[in-house]
Structures are given as structure tokens and as C-alpha cells.
Write a protein that binds this DNA or RNA. Structure first.
Length: 230
DNA sequence: GCGACAG
DNA sequence: ATCTTGTCGC
């Protein structure tokens, strides 16, 4: 149900990885609104690692956007393909995530990533990269501001403030719970920032983090445990 | 050169 | 990300 554009080869060095980002960044689509919140499917993806055993486990969990009920799940396990380098996270996470998405029995709809999209040193973070490779609408919801600056949003849920790279707005700090640390939302591919924030609010009725990432996080950890045991 | 740095 | 117990609070 999901067709992934397979790269010619996975980069082995940081230099190659940066070149791939420079090459693909031009394919990001930022002038589409994206699906309406509360309709269709919303899919969370996340990854867990066991560095000692060189194992990575990814999970994709499809939710009904209206009810937030789980529609489908898939996991994928493999070897860790790239070290963690700030700005190159996608090369560490994407192979397993794409495999999990391909294993889903239904269309993912909007994909919610744990990390950034446009808010990235070369404006091509994980969510944008995943979007370009799959053609799916995608957004990034991160737990930390990375290298970006922001002023604290007002304390009420729903308040936002610009996430800034210098003077350029690359995303928004979004308060999803009253008085709780905001999350950091950025557009990934085929979704605008306003809609990305609306989706994030629709996915956070009871917790700081989106229901999509919470469930994908739980599932990939379980998949990693089971892979380590076997 | 040094520090900071999504997960 | 991951290493890690109990504890405060809804």
C-alpha cells in the first residue's frame, strides 16, 4: 500500500549523506495544505536501538484520525545503518521506518515523525526525507528545539511561537498541554505548518506527545525486546 | 579552535 | 537514543 522510492545506495560517509540531502531537498513540496485533521488515517513512526547488538527496530502505527483508534501496525528490524550525527538522523532511522511502512496492510495517510522536517540545517530533516521517498504527506514533531531559538509560548494549550533559524521561521513551538513544555512542529512534505500544528493538537487530547508517536514508541520498543530475545 | 547538537 | 528507583500527582 506504500511504495518507497529506493535510493541507489545508502551513504556510508557524512559527506555522502549531506550530498544526498542537497540533491533531494529540491523535491520537497511545501505549497500543499495537506489532509484535513480528523479525517482519514494518521500514522506514527518511531525507532528504538540496541547499539551493543547493532539492532534497530522500527514501528508504524496507523490511527483513525477521527477516533484515534488503532487501525493497523507493522514493525521492521535490521542492523543500524548509520551513526547518530546531528543533522543526519534520517540516515540512521529511515531504512527500518520505510520497511515498516511498506509492511502495512493499508494506506498510511499523514505520517507523523519523531524529529524535524523543514527545521533542519539544510531544510531537509527526517520528515521531509521520508515524504520525498514515499510521496506521503509528512510532518515532524520533536521533543527538543535542536539548534533553533524560540520564545516560550503562552501557557495555554494551543499557544504557539515561531521556531527560528536566525530570522527564518522553520517551524513552531506548540503547547499541547497547559503549562507543560511545548513540542516543536515543522512541515515535512505536502503539509503546511498551520495544518501540521492542527494535526498535532488533534493528536494530543491527553498527553504532551502525539498519540501516534506514543504508540509507535511503545511498539518499536517491544519489537526490539523480542528481536533481542530471539 | 570550542561548544551545541532531532534521535 | 540509552543507562535507571522511587516518588509526586491527576
Amino acid at each position: 500500500m506504500t511504495t518507497v522510492r529506493i535510493p541507489a545506495g545508502w551513504p556510508a560517509t557524512e559527506e555522502q549523506a549531506r550530498a544526498v540531502q542537497e540533491e533531494l531537498r529540491g523535491e520537497v513540496v511545501l505549497d500543499e495544505t495537506g489532509p484535513a485533521p480528523g479525517t482519514g488515517h494518521v500514522t506514527g513512526v518511531d525507532v528504538a536501538y540496541d547499539d551493543g547488538r547493532d539492532l534497530v527496530a522500527a514501528a508504524a502505527v496507523v490511527l483513525d484520525a477521527a477516533t484515534l483508534g488503532t487501525v493497523a501496525e507493522a514493525t521492521a528490524v535490521g542492523r543500524i545503518p548509520f551513526p547518530y550525527v546531528p543533522g543526519l538522523l534520517a540516515f540512521r532511522e529511515l531504512p527500518a521506518v520505510l520497511a515498516a511502512l511498506e509492511a502495512l496492510p493499508c494506506a498510511p495517510g499523514l505520517v507523523v515523525c519523531d524529529g524535524y522536517g523543514l527545521a533542519h540545517p539544510r531544510r531537509f530533516g527526517l520528515a521531509s526525507h521520508l515524504g520525498v521517498l514515499t510521496g506521503l504527506p509528512a510532518i515532524g514533531v520533536a521533543k527538543n528545539p535542536f539548534t533553533f531559538r524560540y520564545d516560550d509560548p503562552a501557557p495555554a494549550r494551543g499557544s504557539t511561537s515561531p521556531l527560528l533559524a536566525g530570522t527564518e521561521e522553520v517551524g513552531r513551538a506548540l503547547r499541547t498541554r497547559d503549562g507543560v513544555k511545548p513540542v516543536f512542529v515543522s512541515a515535512g512534505h505536502r503539509v503546511d505548518i498551520g495544518n501540521a500544528c492542527a494535526h498535532t493538537l488533534a493528536l494530543t487530547p491527553g498527553h504532551r506527545l502525539p498519540e501516534t508517536t506514543r504508540r509507535a514508541d511503545a511498539l518499536c520498543r517491544r519489537a526490539l525486546r523480542e528481536a533481542s530475545a530471539a
